[in-house]
Write a protein that binds this DNA or RNA. Structure first.
Lengths: 198, 198
DNA sequence: CCTACCGATCGGTAGG
DNA sequence: CCTACCGATCGGTAGG
């Protein structure tokens, strides 16, 4: 099993608090307390509170991206890729809820530099979705009129999940992924299969 | 023309700052400065900073709701209602960008009471959308398998607009409303008209 | 609406 | 990793 350094547990504590209360409303004293040390001791492991935020966003970004990369670069059909991507997205949210929340939320309370880096990382992740959308459109399996608005529509719905998904909800994450996939396929005009009622 | 009290201009200033920097990152000194007074003088017009936030959310909620109410209670077909609702939603966002942003964003940095009231107001607004969704489903013009997930999917996409919409963008808000309507109709399985390629 | 100020709390540091 | 503390800033108030 993975060794968990004190630094890791500080970052973990910060992730949970940032996710629950936001960046500004979380104090370094809150973070230290949850990690079991005093606030002054925090600075033996981190440089600033903003660095802590960036570290969380970087790790979450890595998680999401690593999960999607093999799917995107596989030889599957765009529709199948999409189905697995949605399942993967939901899996990360389920496994790393707090991290995902900090990552997916565009926090306007940070310094311009920090915010920019977080936005860049989110954009990299969104590009993976874009790629598959474009692939499907070019292959003619998705029927899209305005690619850019469609993309924003789908990604908003996708990112919105973090706001309402509860692991103990009515649907398992597999069922939710399936339903979400069906809806996304409709938006993309790709439901020409047995689901279509033509 | 409408008379604008000092109180109104304080609330307006707060709305713009909350929208741009978030609640915690905005100080009462920022708000006072933008309104052209000193921070101490603020409290002749407001009780607390949180009250200011609530006032903004209440006014925005009123704006959105007033715009949708006549559409929802009209005798139009569900599909037509939906089209007008989307146009109205976009119109409020265009006309009252800052207010809309404060209203639509679930800010985790507030006290539990304040947050609860804001959530209640947002839920009231979402209920108007729910109504029309249900209407269309019952009338058989929308083809929905999981009403609750479909609802969350569409509302996430809808609320996501505030995050990326720029009034000076490629599309006018009428064009955007039209495109958005088409996509929403797809999600709801209601595009059985000439748009369908069956 | 201003002057003058409050107690509390903030992120972060020095020295051990 | 703790003790002890810093300068800055916060939301809000008293008295005019």
């Amino acid at each position: 099993m993975a060794r968990k350094s004190r630094r890791d547990s500080i970052i973990e504590s910060a992730a949970e608090l940032f996710a629950a209360k936001g960046f500004r409303a979380t104090t370094v004293r809150d973070i230290a307390e949850r990690a079991g040390i005093l606030s002054g001791s925090l600075y033996a492991h981190i440089a600033t509170k903003e660095d802590l935020y960036l570290e969380i966003v970087r790790r979450a970004s890595h998680d999401f991206t690593q999960r999607l990369n093999p799917i995107v670069s596989s030889q599957s059909r765009p529709g199948d890729k999409l189905q697995w991507m949605i399942a993967a997205h939901l899996a990360v949210i389920e496994e790393s809820r707090a991290w995902a929340r900090v990552y997916l939320d565009d926090d306007s309370e940070l310094s311009a530099d920090t915010r920019r880096e977080a936005q860049r990382l989110r954009r990299d992740y969104e590009r993976l979705w874009d790629q598959v959308f474009s692939e499907g459109i070019e292959a003619g399996v998705f029927d899209v009129q305005d690619e850019s608005v469609t993309r924003l529509f789908v990604l908003s719905a996708l990112n919105g999940i973090i706001g309402w998904y509860r692991p103990d909800g009515r649907l398992s994450h597999e069922e939710l992924a399936q339903t979400f996939f069906r809806l996304t396929l409709r938006v993309l005009g790709g439901n020409k299969g047995p689901d279509s009622q033509c």
